[in-house]
Simulated scan of single mutants.
Amino acid sequence: MPSAVKMLFFLSSALATVVAVGLLGYGMSARWATVTMSCAKKGTGNFNGSALITMGLFSGELQRQFCPFGNTDKFQVFSVLQGTAVSLHAVVLVLLGLGLLFSACTILISLYNSVSNPYETFMGPSGVYACGSLSACLSFVALIIYVVNATATSMAEDVVKSDNSDVELRDQSSAMEIGYFFVVPYAVMSLVAVAVIVVYDRAAYTHRREQQRPTEDAPKEIMMY
């Protein structure tokens, strides 16, 4: 049976990871980006219309104003994106999914260590280090890929032209929304879960060294008997 101190540290690590998963779960269901563009009917050169796209990871909303008409439509992201844009979007979802998977592993390993004393294997502190660090790293990579996709590919144009390709677009302006930024505290809390176990592991190592010191410092003549 582990000590009360060990239980407290590993349960704290599990709790931090649960909070992280909750943050990412909310973030994945919220808005991720808002994109605005000037719009004109193809061949006219009169950019008096506009398109406002509010995107989440799975669905979004398109508001047209004289582009070339005015209406509001909802859409499914994967049904309107094409080429590089849909590939990068799929990569973002895969990375976030893997992050959640590794977070679940962190929770399970932390809970296992809070009720047992496993050997120093992947089911010990090293497992928390690996899973928690991977969760944070994958989520940061997902953030970078998403912002590149939203600003440097045809993602927004694919949405506007999905039901009317007879338009020209320019002056694209993108802004990240709350769902995107919620990934940051998810990564931070994942690292906090790792840091809690690092503190415990260092304290446990120091305690073991202090227990061994009297034997190490004893005269060789005494140790022979």
Rank of each mutant, 00 (worst) to 15 (best):
M1D: 11
S3F: 09
A4L: 14
V5A: 15
K6A: 13
F10D: 02
L11P: 02
S13M: 05
S13A: 13
A14E: 01
L15D: 02
A16T: 03
A16Q: 03
V18P: 03
V19K: 02
A20R: 03
A20K: 01
S29M: 13
R31F: 00
T34K: 13
T34M: 07
K41H: 06
G43R: 10
G43H: 10
F47M: 08
N48T: 14
G49E: 12
G49C: 02
S50H: 11
S50G: 12
A51W: 08
I53A: 08
M55A: 15
L57H: 03
L57D: 03
G60H: 05
L62E: 06
Q63T: 15
Q65E: 14
Q65A: 12
F66N: 15
P68K: 07
P68H: 04
F69E: 14
F69H: 14
G70S: 15
T72G: 01
T72E: 08
K74M: 08
V77T: 09
F78K: 12
S79P: 00
Q82D: 11
G83Q: 02
T84C: 01
T84K: 14
V86Q: 10
L88E: 14
L88Y: 13
H89T: 05
H89D: 13
A90K: 12
V91H: 02
V91C: 03
V92Q: 07
L93H: 12
L93A: 12
L93P: 02
V94F: 08
L95P: 08
G97E: 07
L98R: 07
G99M: 05
G99P: 06
F102P: 01
C105I: 11
I107H: 08
L108D: 04
L108G: 09
I109F: 09
S110Q: 01
L111Y: 07
V115T: 15
N117M: 09
P118I: 00
Y119G: 14
T121P: 01
F122Y: 09
M123R: 12
G124L: 01
G124A: 14
P125R: 09
P125E: 11
G127M: 08
Y129H: 10
A130N: 11
C131R: 02
C131A: 15
L134V: 14
S135P: 05
S135T: 15
S135N: 05
L138R: 10
L138I: 11
S139F: 01
S139C: 08
V141Y: 06
I144V: 15
I145E: 04
T151Q: 13
A152N: 13
A152K: 15
M155G: 04
V159G: 05
S162R: 06
N164L: 03
N164Y: 09
V167L: 07
E168K: 07
E168W: 10
R170W: 02
R170P: 01
Q172G: 11
Q172W: 04
A175M: 09
A175G: 11
E177T: 07
E177F: 04
G179I: 06
Y180A: 06
F181E: 03
F181H: 12
P185L: 10
P185R: 05
Y186G: 04
Y186N: 04
L191H: 00
L191C: 07
V192A: 08
A193R: 06
A193F: 03
V194K: 06
V196P: 02
V198N: 06
Y200W: 15
A204H: 10
Y205D: 13
R208H: 10
E210L: 12
Q211I: 08
D217P: 00
A218Q: 06
E221M: 03
E221W: 04
E221F: 05
I222W: 01
M224A: 14
